[in-house]
């Protein structure tokens, strides 16, 4: 009940948008380019077997592998930059600069390199998602209070102990907010990867429906992609809540 109350305004806006969309689509009456929400839901139901059993697992696999690789690379790089000042000086500017590269424009090259295998899509996902994880984790590791560090030093703590007992717990909230951004970006990464070359996946399926002038069929997998993004986001939020029992009291 409380949940409903706090989300009531956004639910109202969504309802309003859908109703306007439904009416607009009814007036335009060109299903192949402008399907109504209801038609999309019906199409989703009709395509449920092929979407849920074939294309959803393919896309999920890309996202999960991509995210895992991003977490491993991102966290390692962040830790390395944190413990070694020259590594920070060498990599941090490059990291920022890498974000100005239009990854989407580069994506066709990965198809050339990795072919139509899963890896060309994973690489696109990794390139999009590793940045928020790396930068957030690094900022988190850097965020430790100097006073706390000195207090631990006066207790005779070693560098390793300061890292484990102070830096890691301080960085966790930052890591989680980076992961939240990365999770939503991974949906985009996987879908773009699939547009360029794939035999399966929600992005691939959506594009195929476009060539068949099946407007509702284009939207149906996109709805599914959005739902997957939201579910992953909520999953990370729940993980975060479990890690931060102490925050509840604030």
């Amino acid at each position: 009940m409380k949940l409903l109350k706090s989300y009531f305004p956004s639910i109202l806006i969504i309802l309003f948008l859908f109703i306007s969309w439904e009416i607009g689509a009814y007036l335009v009456n060109q299903t192949f380019i402008f399907p109504s929400p209801l038609q999309i839901l019906i199409r989703l139901w009709e395509l449920k077997d092929v979407l849920f059993l074939k294309h959803l697992p393919a896309t999920l696999l890309i996202m999960v592998i991509g995210l895992l690789i991003s977490i491993i690379i991102g966290v390692s790089l962040a830790v390395w930059m944190n413990v070694n000042k020259s590594v920070e000086k060498a990599f941090y500017p490059l990291l920022i600069a890498s974000q100005t590269i239009p990854i989407i424009a580069l994506a066709p090259i990965f198809v050339l390199w990795f072919g139509y295998s899963i890896w060309s899509k994973v690489v696109v996902t990794v390139l999009i998602t590793f940045f928020p994880i790396t930068v957030n984790t690094f900022d988190g590791l850097r965020s430790i209070k100097k006073e706390l560090e000195e207090l631990l030093l006066t207790m005779g703590a070693s560098k390793k102990e300061i890292f484990l007992k102070l830096s890691v717990p301080s960085a966790l909230p930052f890591f989680y907010s980076g992961l939240k951004v990365a999770v939503t970006l991974s949906v985009i990464g996987a879908a773009i990867g699939e547009w360029l070359g794939a035999q399966a996946g929600l992005g691939y399926f959506s594009r195929r429906m476009m060539t068949q002038f099946d407007g509702a069929g284009v939207f149906a997998p996109i709805v599914l992609l959005a739902v997957v993004g939201i579910i992953l986001f909520l999953f990370v939020t729940i993980l975060e809540r479990i890690s931060f029992k102490w925050r509840k009291t604030e």
Binding site: E147, L148, L151, L153, G156, P169
Partner: peptide
Amino acid sequence: LGTIGYMPQQDLLLP
């Protein structure tokens, strides 16, 4: 370092 008990100005408890 490690031989003296130091109590800082702020409580500096780990949250």
